[in-house]
Design a protein around this nucleic acid. Structure first.
Length: 507
RNA sequence: GCCCCCAUCGUCUAGAGGCCUAGGACGCCACCCUUUCAAGGUGGAGAUCAGGGGUUCGAAUCCCCUUGGGGGCACCA
């Protein structure tokens, strides 16, 4: 029985990408399901593009999605925990140096003195001859004397790993099945250490996966063709070759590999737009995996219980935003009221802050304000960010009502004025004590009947007067939330607004 | 150019030779519910299973070819 160890190895050169999150999710699910260990390793060797802000975004994002790891940096910028550390590649440089020295000593790798110009020329010639780009092996068999003389010229070598010329590398991929690739298609001997001594990706990743005793490498299909190089490297390093599983790619709508240019890719952007982590995780799980049953909704725990790599698909899947929207609504509706209120607050605050900056006077909302509103909004929220549109009128002191919306579709200005006056009177007659849904509904329905109005039209006039919107939660509860005094006040304001308009207006 | 991978409704998918005149979900349409908007309910349109050959009594399911799509071939990760 193999002890399962798998990992996610993001580069802090950008915010947490949806594709990285999906790979992390599948690794997490596999590790948890198998009772194994899930490791986070930061591949931060691209010093020019790294940033602590990205590292923070990645760690925060994974944490917010609930994809907790057993080993690796927990907090951006701080040291990691775990027995195989360090977990940042920049802190592991001596390991790569030692590994390359070993390969060099065993003649499994050699110093290459080719200049960038020479390599570019080779490449151009190959391109002109319509050949695949590959290293010619100019430095593969230099004598010690030749090396010395090149060094004497001041040349600094890169290190190349020898790729055997006529071999077929085969492996049994857990999602693709058996894959065979000829080494002749690998592009020749592979640079593993730059002239400046820094390790290249393919090398550092294998050294780390070997040192960290990874049993399974679960990653995107874009690495499938690179796998033979990695297998060769594992062998040369004297390490057991892990089991591979290549996940189908997440695609743009045009079926190309998901990219920032064509699809929103930052997990933090989805969170900022009010998608709940439950929905994001659920959606990602369903891109490339299915349970086999008809269930569509899965919590992380349910996914963990159901997940099997054997059920991962082979074909890429388009990231369907509309399905995410639906899932988000589903998960929002399943949240406990106080939980939802807590999550909603920052979005309401942001919405009102934006309106305040536009010149509206607003009241600072609290979680306590939100809790009694939850049952009114919960089934109306496609995302958390939609909260503002639903309840902003409760926090804005003076509504800016668009006059055109004040007159219901089947009414004219005169009828609307009459309706608003009558409603105002009826509500005032109820008094503050009977100002509740039980009091309001019969009073206003009777009023409509009395005047021969359709109740819906009267309600719409009141709705717009009280909220400034034509689409709101149920009217009577909305008015109750607004309160007796403010309801009367807004009916007055709306009436005044209509009165101030020319008589011919509206209809 | 070379190598590798993939191919079921618009999208995500079920399907591991007969249960498939191909099922579910999103989206779309209609109706019901209804004071608006949602949510919910019911129903509908939507796939000659990319195409062509095989194998088999029988193929969406197995094999081959074609086509289409994607990915990879860096002193990027």
């Amino acid at each position: 029985m193999v002890t399962v160890r798998c990992r996610i190895a993001p580069s802090p050169t950008g915010p947490l990408h949806i594709g990285t999150a999906r790979t992390a999710l599948f690794n997490y699910l596999f590790a948890r399901r198998q009772g194994g260990t899930f490791v986070l390793r930061l591949e931060d060797t691209d010093v020019a593009r790294n940033s602590l802000a990205y590292e923070r975004d990645i760690l925060d994002g994974l944490h917010r999605l609930g994809l907790d790891w057993d080993e690796g940096p927990e907090v951006a910028g701080l040291p990691a925990r775990g027995p195989y550390g360090p977990y940042r590649q920049m802190e592991r440089l001596s390991l790569y140096a030692a590994a390359s020295a070993r390969l060099l000593a065993a003649d499994l790798a050699y110093p290459c003195y080719c200049s960038p110009e020479e390599l570019a020329a080779d490449r151009a010639a190959q391109e002109a001859a319509r050949e695949p780009p590959h290293y010619l092996g100019r430095c593969a068999h230099l004598s010690a004397a030749e090396r010395r003389s090149l060094e004497a010229e001041g040349r600094r070598p890169a290190i190349r790993f020898r790729i055997p010329p006529d071999e077929t590398i085969a492996f049994d991929d857990l999602v693709r099945g058996r894959v065979e690739i000829a080494t002749s298609a690998l592009g020749g001997d592979l640079v593993i250490v730059r002239r400046d001594g820094s390790p290249l990706y393919h090398f550092s990743v294998c050294v780390d996966d070997a040192e960290m005793a990874m049993s399974h490498i679960i990653r995107g299909e874009d690495h499938l063709s690179n796998t033979p190089k990695h297998i060769l490297l594992f062998r040369a390093l004297g390490a057991p070759v892990p089991t591979f599983a290549h996940l189908p790619l997440i695609l743009n709508p045009d079926r190309t590999k998901m990219s920032k240019r064509k699809t929103q890719t930052a997990v933090s952007d989805y969170l900022a737009q009010g998608y709940v982590p439950e929905a994001i995780v659920n959606h990602l799980a369903l891109l490339g995996w299915s349970s086999g049953g008809t269930d569509e909704l899965f919590t992380l725990d349910e996914l963990t219980a159901a997940f099997e790599l054997e059920r991962v698909h082979q074909a890429g899947a388009i990231f369907d935003r509309e399905r995410l929207d639906w899932l988000d609504g589903q998960w929002i509706r399943r949240l406990a009221p106080d939980d939802l209120a807590r999550r909603l607050l920052p979005f309401l605050e942001a919405d009102l802050a934006a309106k305040a900056s536009l010149g509206l006077e607003v009241v600072e909302p609290t979680e306590a304000d939100l809790i009694p509103l939850v049952h009114l909004v919960q089934e109306r929220l496609p995302t958390l960010a939609a909260i503002g549109d639903l309840v902003d009128f409760l926090f804005i002191r003076e509504l800016a009502v668009e006059p055109a919306t004040l007159v219901p579709r089947h009414w004219d200005r005169g009828t609307t004025l009459a309706g608003l006056r009558a409603a105002r009177q009826a509500i005032a007659a109820l008094g503050e004590v009977s100002f509740d849904t039980e009091g309001l509904e019969p009073a206003l329905r009777d009023l409509a009947a009395e005047h021969g109005w359709k109740a819906g039209d009267l309600f719409m006039a009141i709705r717009v007067a009280a909220t400034g919107r034509t689409a709101t939660p149920p009217l009577f509860e909305t008015l109750v939330a607004l309160g007796y005094g403010r309801t009367l006040e807004r009916l007055d304001r709306a009436r005044e607004l209509l009165e101030s308009l020319p008589a011919v207006w509206g209809g």
